[in-house]
């Protein structure tokens, strides 16, 4: 049986429109105007037990809304949804014990208290008895490489340590499904890597299903064999990460800082010129020809600095959808 089953899941918000100022408020009282905004537009997918699935999409694509529907924080406007055998929006206690939600930008632990105190509260709320709770805390603390930090007030911990204690608190009740919204937000490279390792390890050990969103492609690359890409509320891609990268990033980005100024035409033949501002130049180069093109660039120009990277996922997705829109427009013409 699938852990998550979503069919034609949709969420439409009714947004009331109000003119600014007092007059606008008064007019709004008399004559309310509403506008429907489609945040999630009939998406369908299933996730099997033990899968780690990455949830991608630019800001405002509907990622968070979907995540909130899956956890039961938002009532879907239409469609069918089942998580761990329950309908999430009813938020039955038995369902809530099966899941957990971690948001990288919001804390559930108490700022002024040592994490252990907050953990004891969670243990009581989830009905885990003391010895069992101690055992689980010990186990998770070991996996997360947390020790005396748990006895220090939360405010005295580093961002990475805080995130790890948040994870510990979120996993104390051994949830079968983990929802992680930007779990590595703001963490430095080391802490990020440790959180990723832990999540992979946890998934291996417990067989828990993990669904995570991230802006950081690194998280997704390291953890998720499967990704769901959402754009403008629609499911655009459901499949392996390799297939997605192939589809989205056939090119790599080459960023150059040049000694001298050159006109835009000078870069023709090296790749697609993305940005050209004074001494700074950004080019998109097909993966297969990367080495020869870079070599040619170095030969042709006096290069002060050079950097090769994958274009940001948002730009890729944006570019892709611009292409699709252009193709659709072209197809419509006779």
């Amino acid at each position: 049986m699938s852990t998550i089953r979503a069919r034609d899941l949709a969420k439409t918000y009714r947004i009331s429109e109000k003119q600014p100022g007092l007059a606008g408020t008064l007019r709004h009282l008399v004559n309310r105007r509403h506008r429907e905004v489609v945040a999630v537009d009939r998406i369908s997918f299933t996730i099997e037990p033990g899968e780690i699935v990455g949830f991608l999409g630019p800001n405002g694509a509907g990622k968070t809304t979907t995540l909130k529907m899956l956890t039961g924080l938002i009532h879907p406007s239409a469609g069918e949804l089942e998580v761990a055998g329950y309908q999430p929006w009813r938020r039955q206690a038995a369902f809530l014990r099966q899941i957990t939600l971690v948001m990288g930008n919001r804390q559930q632990l108490i700022w002024d208290l040592p994490a252990l105190d907050s953990l004891r509260v969670n243990a009581a709320v989830y009905g885990i008895d003391e010895p069992e709770a101690r055992r689980r805390i010990g186990e998770l603390a070991e996996m997360l490489e947390l020790g005396p930090e748990l006895q220090r007030p939360l405010r005295k911990l580093s961002l990475g340590q805080r995130m790890k204690t948040e994870l510990l608190a979120a996993l104390l009740h051994r949830p079968a499904v983990l929802f992680l919204d930007e779990p590595t937000l703001g963490l430095d490279v080391n802490a990020q890597a440790r959180v990723r390792d832990f999540l992979a390890d946890y998934n291996r050990r417990t067989g828990a299903t993990v669904l995570l969103t991230s802006h950081d492609m690194g998280d997704i690359t390291a953890l998720c064999p499967r990704v769901l890409l959402i754009h403008q509320g629609q499911l655009f891609h459901d499949g392996s990460l390799a297939a997605l990268t192939q589809r989205l990033a056939p090119c790599r980005q080459v960023r150059l800082e040049l000694e001298h100024l050159h006109p835009a035409e000078a870069f023709a033949g090296f790749g697609t010129l993305e940005a050209h501002q004074g001494h700074q130049v950004r080019l998109l180069v097909p993966r297969a020809q990367l080495t020869e093109r870079v070599a040619a660039l170095l030969e042709r120009f006096a290069v002060v600095d050079l950097e090769v990277s994958d274009p940001p996922i948002e730009e890729l997705i944006g570019g892709l959808f611009r292409q699709r829109a252009a193709a659709a427009a072209a197809g419509a013409e006779p």
Binding site: T71, L73, A93, L96, L101, M103, Q108, V125, Y126, G127
Partner: peptide
């Protein structure tokens, strides 16, 4: 936004 956490507790 921490009300989300409260609503997701089985209590």
């Amino acid at each position: 936004g921490t009300l989300d956490y409260v609503l997701l507790k089985p209590i």
